[in-house]
Structure formats: structure tokens, C-alpha cells
Design a protein around this nucleic acid. Structure first.
Lengths: 218, 218
DNA sequence: AATATTTTGGACACAATTGTCCAATTCGTC
DNA sequence: GACGAATTGGACAATTGTGTCCAAAATATT
């Protein structure tokens, strides 16, 4: 779990100086909030990890509640942006359906689901969603509310083009995502970084089963 | 989220008087820990919800760390016990595979996955697993470590009896469980109690897709 | 009814945290 | 190099929480 700010964001120094510290704070805050929960996260710990004085945090971001809100907004934005960037590579008119869908699945796992932003976010929402109902609503709107329909739309396209047999694209989307996560949740729930090699395997497993269920029989 | 102690355990008064308070404390502690996280849970809050003085908690269960450990042990035990009780009803030699597997899936969802014990536990482990590595190991041993192989064994039995086409029962077990949870995680992650009617639907959806992928083609 | 045990509630010391104030210092800019 | 803005570190009061002690009250046991 060490150095996950860097892991999430390597370009700290391309921003204007003021934004630089602000980003450092937000990254550190995301880490600490995720590790310790809202109650357990101390401003001092965040300041220390960000390499910044406590006062600077109060100057730039106000109190703890507001800091938390800003962190979640930022991470939500980054996370959904990444997700849709990958979704744009969905194989809508594939030559080799299984191969291309497997490749896409691997990308989705790598860049959107395993990615630190998404993981931190899910954990934060699960932990603190009850304490910040508004935030939870926002997340639901941008997370499941937009992602699942988007996936469903792609799958529906594949079905229309004759590749798949679907009666309920929305359900198929939820099940496809669930299959992708099948091998993940088991122990990656915690900090365990999933090795590259396994990701390809997981993508292949999920895709194979999904297609066994939904590929149009020729 | 109110009154979830009672929801989890209606038989407070059948125990010897001493155990009675102890159970009240453990139930209250489970609730508060799950709601607030380890750091956010205060002994006072637990005492208040348990209807017990703070001192009694220290008398019976020692300090906060130990209290937490005992809570997780107890809940783990109850949770796995419930799971295996349902697993015993797995349709090993079904007449109507889809119908019976759907019924079984609904029971599993109802009594093991949606059930408060399991939910609280998953949340606690996810939140505090990093802070209590030993506890996390224990959970992994009793959770995924025993449950998934048990499911895999039943599926392998079905395959051997000619109902299913499986090359990897362990993978199939993970995917079956993932499909069951597909509709769940989306918003039940939070306290939302899943309505009975939806559970049957979820079981049917998961089972249908699972069988589309793995039922032996006649 | 008398006695042993548990529970209670309140007081306490100690530590951690939040959020504010401010003077000294560093930093970017002109 | 000088000026203005941001940053720092330290001190501060207020709050909250942990864990302990103890005498009074309630509860169980005999």
C-alpha cells in the first residue's frame, strides 16, 4: 500500500506550482481516507504524507468534511474518465469476437477496475457512504448509473449485429461485469496488487464463460 | 440499519444471564463496528446500544482490540455455519436442474449472502483487514478458503453425473458466486435491505446464465 | 434472609484530534 | 534584489475517546 499516490499519478510536476501542492494533498488524503476510513484519517497524517504543513491543508481545502468531498469528486472524475476511455475501444464489429472481447476485458480490468482510483473509490463509498448520503448518491449516479448502461449499450450493439443472443442487455452487462470481478474480489479486496499475468487469465475466463452463455449459436 | 442486532439474533433470552449481556454487547459492537469502522466506533456508543454500562464491556471483554477480535470470531462462526447449512441442500441429483438450482440459489442469497452476518463481516474485513492482518487471514481461511472449494465440489458432482460441462470446477464456483452477487453489489453494498421478491429474480437470472454457459448440451 | 457476584455510573488521567491564530520563513514574480 | 503571496511550524483551546478505579446499587446464589 506504500506510495500509492505516485502509483495513481506520476505527473505531479506538470501543474502550476499552486495546484502542485493541492494535488499532493488530494492524493495523500485519498490514500489515508481509504486506509483509515474517515474517522481514522487524521489531518496530520495526511499532511505528513503529502509533505505539507497542516495549515496548508486548511488554507487550501477548508475543514475535514470539505476535504473529503473534494477528494471523492476528483477521484470519481478520474475514475469514470478512465473507464469511458477504455470503453471506447469496445469491439463493436469484431473479426474474432472471443479474442477481441478478451483483450478488451483485460484492458478494462487493468485500467478501470484494478486501477487504484476505482478501488479507493469503491472502498470509500462502501465505508463512508452512510455518513455522506449526498456523496453516495453522486457516486451512484456517476458509477453504476452511467457505466452499466454504457456497457449494456455496447452489448446490445453486438447482439443487433448478430454476435450475441441477449434478451436483457442491462442484465447481461451486470453479469459481464460480475464475471470480470469474479476472481478479483476474492483477495484483492485488500491491497494485494493483482499481477499482470493473472489479469489476462481473468479476462479470458470471464470472456469465455460470458460467450458460452450469450454467443449466438451458429 | 436500525435494530440490526435483533435482526441478527432474536434469542437473547434463552441464554444464561451472564451470556445474555455478553451477547448484547457483541451484537451492539458488531453493528457499531460495521457502521463506524474500528476507529470510529466508540466504546460508549457500543455500551449505549447494548444497554449496558461501559465498565461492563471492559469487565467481560477487555480492551477495544480484544472486543473487536471476539466480535469477528463470533460472526465468522455464525456466518460459515449458516452457509454450510444451506449448502447441504444443494441439488446433487436433481430432476429439474434449472428449477432446483434456482431454488437453491435463492436460499443461498437469502440465508448466506444477504444475511446481516455475512454482510457485516465482509464490510469489516474489507475496512479493517489491513489493520488486523491475523484476523484477515482467519477470515480468508474460513471464508473463501472453505466456501469456494465446497461449492466447487458440488458443481463437480453435478458435472460427473452428466448435468454440467466443466473443465475447471473451482473457476465455475467462483463464477457462479459472482453471478449470484451481480445484481447485489450494485446498491446493496450499503444498508439497503434487498426485498424478497428481487431475490428470487436474482437467483433465476444467475442460474439461467450459469446453465446457459455450463449445462451439458443434450 | 444473608451473602457473593455483577453491574452501574461517575470521576479521573492521559492521549489524540480538530480547527484557529500568528510570527517567521520560504517561494515565485517582477 | 525586492515585493507580495503562500507556506511553515508551533502554540493553543476545545472536544472526544480510552482505560482505570471505586463505592453504591442491583442481581444471583445459598
Amino acid at each position: 500500500m506504500k506510495n500509492s499516490s505516485a502509483e495513481r499519478n506520476q505527473d505531479q510536476d506538470i501543474w502550476p506550482p499552486a495546484q502542485n501542492k493541492r494535488q499532493a494533498i488530494l492524493n495523500a488524503a485519498a490514500d489515508i481516507f481509504a486506509e483509515e476510513g474517515f474517522a481514522g484519517a487524521s489531518i496530520d497524517a495526511i499532511a505528513a504524507r503529502a509533505g505539507v504543513s497542516r495549515q496548508t491543508i486548511y488554507n487550501q481545502l477548508g475543514d475535514k468534511d470539505n476535504l473529503f468531498q473534494v477528494v471523492v469528486s476528483e477521484i470519481t472524475e478520474r475514475s469514470t474518465a478512465g473507464f469511458f476511455r477504455v470503453l471506447d475501444t469496445f469491439p463493436v464489429a469484431p473479426q474474432d469476437l472471443e479474442r477481441e472481447l478478451t483483450e478488451f476485458s483485460a484492458q478494462l480490468l487493468r485500467k478501470a477496475i484494478c486501477d487504484p482510483n476505482g478501488r479507493w473509490l469503491r472502498k470509500l463509498v462502501e465505508t463512508e457512504g452512510a455518513r455522506f448520503p449526498k456523496l453516495f448518491e453522486t457516486w451512484k449516479e456517476y458509477g453504476p448509473g452511467k457505466k452499466y448502461p454504457a456497457v449494456a449499450a455496447r452489448l446490445a450493439q453486438l447482439a443487433l449485429a448478430g454476435y450475441l443472443d441477449l434478451d436483457d442487455p442491462a442484465l447481461a452487462a451486470r453479469q459481464y461485469m460480475a464475471l470480470l470481478g469474479a476472481d478479483l474480489r476474492i483477495d484483492q479486496q485488500l491491497g494485494r496488487q493483482t499481477p499482470e499475468s493473472e489479469i489476462d487469465l481473468m479476462a479470458a475466463n470471464a470472456t469465455r464463460t460470458f460467450l458460452r452463455a450469450f454467443a449466438r449459436r451458429s
